Simulated scan of single mutants.
Amino acid sequence: MPEFRTRYLVGAPLSAVAEFHWREDALACLTPPPLRLEVLQREPLAEGSRLRFRLRLGPVAVMWEARHVDVDPQRGFTDEQVEGPLLTWRHRHAFFPLVGDYTLVEEEVRYAYKPGWRHGWTRVVFSPLALRFLFAYRRWALRRALERA
C-alpha cells in the first residue's frame, strides 16, 4: 500500500495548531486551487464523527465521506475514507509541541487505488507528485494562517 509522509514546523504553539484543525473551515483553508471543496455534511470533529464533501477539479466532481478516529484534541486525529475515489485513504494528523512556541506537524497518508481503467485518473490526481504538491500547499496555508505577525 502506498504511503506519503511529511513533517514540518509551524511557528505557533500546539494549542493554536490544534484549534485550527478543529475549525469548521479548516479543510477548505487547506485545499489548494484548482480544487474546490463543497461541504455537504459536517459533524463536529470527535471520535467517529463524519464529514461529507464534494471535491471538484474543473468539471469533475467527486463525493467523499470521511470518518474521524483516534481523535485527541491536542495531539491530532486520523481521517479515514468511508466513501470516495480511492479504495482506501487513511490520513493521520499528529501535532507535537516544541520549545519556543513551535509545533511539529506530521502527516501520514496510506492509500490504495481502486482497480480498473475507470479509476485510472486517481493515479494522476493522487500520485506521489500530486500529494507532494497538496501537502506543500497545506504546509504553506497552515503557516500563513498561524504565523501572521
Rank of each mutant, 00 (worst) to 15 (best):
Met1Ala: 14
Arg5Gly: 08
Val10His: 00
Gly11Ile: 04
Ala12Asn: 00
Ala12Pro: 07
Leu14Met: 02
Leu14Tyr: 00
Ser15Ala: 12
Val17Cys: 00
Val17Ala: 04
Val17Arg: 02
Glu19Pro: 01
Trp22Gly: 01
Arg23Phe: 05
Arg23Asp: 06
Glu24Met: 05
Glu24Ser: 13
Ala26His: 08
Leu27Met: 11
Ala28Met: 10
Ala28Asn: 05
Leu30Val: 13
Thr31Ile: 10
Pro32Leu: 10
Pro33Asp: 08
Glu38Ser: 14
Val39Gln: 10
Glu43Val: 03
Glu43Tyr: 08
Leu45Lys: 09
Ala46Glu: 04
Ala46Val: 06
Ala46Asp: 07
Ala46Lys: 00
Glu47Asn: 07
Gly48Ala: 07
Ser49Gly: 13
Leu51Phe: 05
Phe53Ser: 11
Arg54Glu: 10
Arg54Ser: 14
Arg56Met: 06
Leu57Asp: 09
Leu57Arg: 01
Leu57Ser: 00
Pro59Met: 06
Val62Cys: 10
Met63Asn: 07
Met63Thr: 11
Glu65Leu: 11
Ala66Ile: 13
Ala66Asp: 13
Ala66Val: 15
Ala66Gly: 09
Arg67Tyr: 02
Pro73Gln: 10
Pro73Thr: 07
Gln81Ser: 04
Glu83Trp: 10
Glu83Leu: 14
Gly84Ala: 11
Arg90Met: 01
Arg92Lys: 12
His93Lys: 03
His93Ala: 08
Phe95His: 03
Leu98Ala: 12
Asp101Thr: 05
Tyr102Thr: 12
Thr103Leu: 04
Glu106Gly: 01
Glu108Val: 15
Tyr113His: 13
Lys114Met: 14
Trp117Asn: 03
Trp117Gly: 03
Arg118Asn: 11
His119Arg: 00
Gly120Asn: 11
Gly120Lys: 10
Arg123Trp: 10
Val124Cys: 04
Val124Glu: 11
Phe126Asn: 06
Ala130Leu: 13
Leu131Asp: 07
Phe133Cys: 14
Phe133Gly: 13
Phe135Val: 05
Ala136Gly: 15
Tyr137Glu: 12
Tyr137Val: 09
Arg143Glu: 06
Ala149Tyr: 15
Ala149Phe: 11
